[in-house]
């Protein structure tokens, strides 16, 4: 009986911590939450995309709904390289205040692919 409940606990904990993020994805997660404070209305990625990339966001100025960034919530994400580069180009300049590096972009995409 005791071993059964331990097994149950193990299963629950496995489920809630499903697949820990890889180191690149962890860096991507930190970047996603980082406050750059370059832009008053968009101090961080989360200003439009919310703290949870699994949820839809809202454009900080226009109010338009933004579909989730996480691939598990939105299968379209990161499927069109030209679109990905376009939005990194615009949003990095606007929010980070400079172009993002290739590593930053790779980490960001890793996080969005892995987060569940």
């Amino acid at each position: 009986m005791r071993s059964l409940s331990i097994l149950g606990l193990l299963l629950i904990s496995l489920n809630s911590h499903a697949a820990p993020l890889s180191p690149p994805a962890q860096r991507g997660e930190a970047f996603f939450h980082q406050r750059f404070a370059v832009n008053d209305k968009m101090p961080a990625c989360t200003a439009c995309h919310t703290d949870n990339p699994l949820k839809p966001g809202q454009h900080a100025i226009t109010g338009k709904t933004i579909q989730p960034l996480a691939v598990s919530a939105n299968g379209e994400r990161f499927s069109d390289p030209a679109k990905v580069e376009k939005w990194f180009g615009r949003n990095c300049k606007e929010v980070v205040g400079r172009a993002c590096t290739a590593d930053e972009k790779a980490d960001f995409v890793a996080y969005m692919r892995e987060v569940r």
Binding site: Q58, I61, T62, G63, K64, T65
Partner: peptide
């Protein structure tokens, strides 16, 4: 929910 006059769909 509206935020801005730009947000017709709200």
């Amino acid at each position: 929910r509206v935020k801005s006059a730009a947000n017709c769909e709200a």
